[in-house]
Amino acid sequence: MSVSNSSVSRMPAPLALATRVLPLLPLQVLLGICLREIRSRHPRIFDRLGSHTGKRYGLAPSDLPIAFVLEPRRMNPRVTVVRTLPANIDARIAGPLSALIGMTDGSYDGDALFFSRDIEIDGDMEAVVALRNAIDDSRVDFLKESVAWFGPLAAPIERILRSLVGAPATQREEFGVEGGGRSWN
């Protein structure tokens, strides 16, 4: 059972190399703003996380020389950008950035990425499963919400970011279908 060809995009090497010398503080400020937006727009994430809001998650894009420590605390969620993940994290999720983003917006199924070995997970598996389910239910579109505050420029910036990261475009909205099924009661 060898892994079939992965459909997950990797970050272009020159861009990944550039990240090596970029200062981390501006990125951290941007992510902090984004996280606060997500907190206000998607409060149900924290209900689904339950006791795991107190956990420290290490998110390690395998195609970038940086990583993120996510602390999804209900009142004061925090994300820290680091060059190397610290030892004192509860769980680690690693994989191409496009896979990590794709799991948040519903483009990729986390189990399938695990089966294909595109992502690696270790540490507290309850915390990992709770985070995956909470985010999957929330419909967080991380890239879209990260650039929302650019106003009219948000859409073109999002397109550029998606092409750089290799993340699939998402068109998921709240919708239904017309007719089709039947009801018993």
Binding site: V129, A134, G179
Partner: peptide, 25 residues
């Protein structure tokens, strides 16, 4: 019965109502 999965009572009521609006059981 997995962490972060499944429906609260309120979510179940809302979800069933949503499905019924589209003819889904």
């Amino acid at each position: 019965n997995f962490p972060g999965l499944n429906f609260s009572r309120e979510e179940m009521r809302e979800s069933i109502a949503h499905a019924h609006r589209y003819g889904c059981s």
